[in-house]
């Protein structure tokens, strides 16, 4: 059963987490995808947590500061800050392992054994968000251009696809690569990535597959 829990974020604010626990020794902290992909995959992540419980694995899904229910401003967040927050959440919430999903692999701290599901690089994330901004601007009758948007973002931050990114986060995303952790390929989940969906959707078979693979590989 999924329950709400709290932990103390690095800035001192209380942050939320979802937990699924039945007293197992193994407790996986899920590092969520970033930005739009978190919304698209939220249902998938929650069902994966339920599926992990059937493999004798407890799980916890914390909000990264500035995302989801967090009251911290997104604009003030950085990849380095999120990495520190994940390490802190893992310690406070008693995680024994980490499972990063998509952009979550950019903020994996090194302390615990980890797996990365379909990891994605910072430049790939940024490329999609900039492109969305250019397309939206064009629809609104404004011409915008990738390099000019990036230059603005580097100096003063920028709003992309509804997310207000600070200059520090944008600069980090331009070169961020997934942390070194064994990867789980999307193809192994038996379907196309649910982050591709224009409308958030779920595929129960993919959650079951991910939970089974995680349980096998962390055993």
């Amino acid at each position: 059963m999924l329950r709400a829990a709290t932990w103390q974020g690095p800035s001192g604010l209380t942050e939320y987490a979802v937990t699924c626990e039945t007293g197992n020794a193994r407790r996986v902290l899920i590092v969520p995808p970033l930005f739009d992909e978190h919304n698209k995959l939220r249902h998938f992540l929650a069902e994966t947590m339920r599926a992990l419980a059937t493999h004798a694995t407890d799980s916890v899904l914390p909000d990264l500061p500035g995302t989801n229910e967090s009251l911290a401003p997104l604009e003030a967040q950085t990849l380095a800050g999120w990495r520190q927050a994940v390490a802190s959440a893992a310690s406070q919430l008693g995680a024994t392992h980490l499972l990063a999903v998509r952009g979550g692999a950019l903020v994996l701290p090194g302390e615990l054994p980890a797996l990365a599901c379909a990891p994605v690089s910072g430049p790939a994330i940024l490329r999609g968000m900039i492109r969305a901004r250019v397309i939206a601007d064009r629809e609104a009758g404004r011409e915008s251009e990738r390099e000019a948007l990036l230059a603005m973002g580097r100096s003063e931050g920028i709003e992309l696809a509804g997310y207000r990114l600070g200059a520090g986060l944008l600069r980090e995303l331009e070169s961020a690569e997934p942390a070194e952790a064994p990867a789980i390929a999307q193809a192994d989940l038996g379907g196309a990535g649910l982050w591709l969906r224009a409308e958030p959707a779920h595929d129960p078979a993919q959650s079951l597959a991910l939970a089974r693979i995680v349980a096998e590989r962390l055993a």
Binding site: R131, A132, R133, I135, A136, A161, L196, A198, E199
Partner: peptide
């Protein structure tokens, strides 16, 4: 023509 195909979805479509 398709309301769900917004700018972010189109960006993802093109990347794919």
């Amino acid at each position: 023509h398709l309301p769900e195909l917004d700018s972010m979805a189109v960006a993802g479509l093109l990347t794919e």
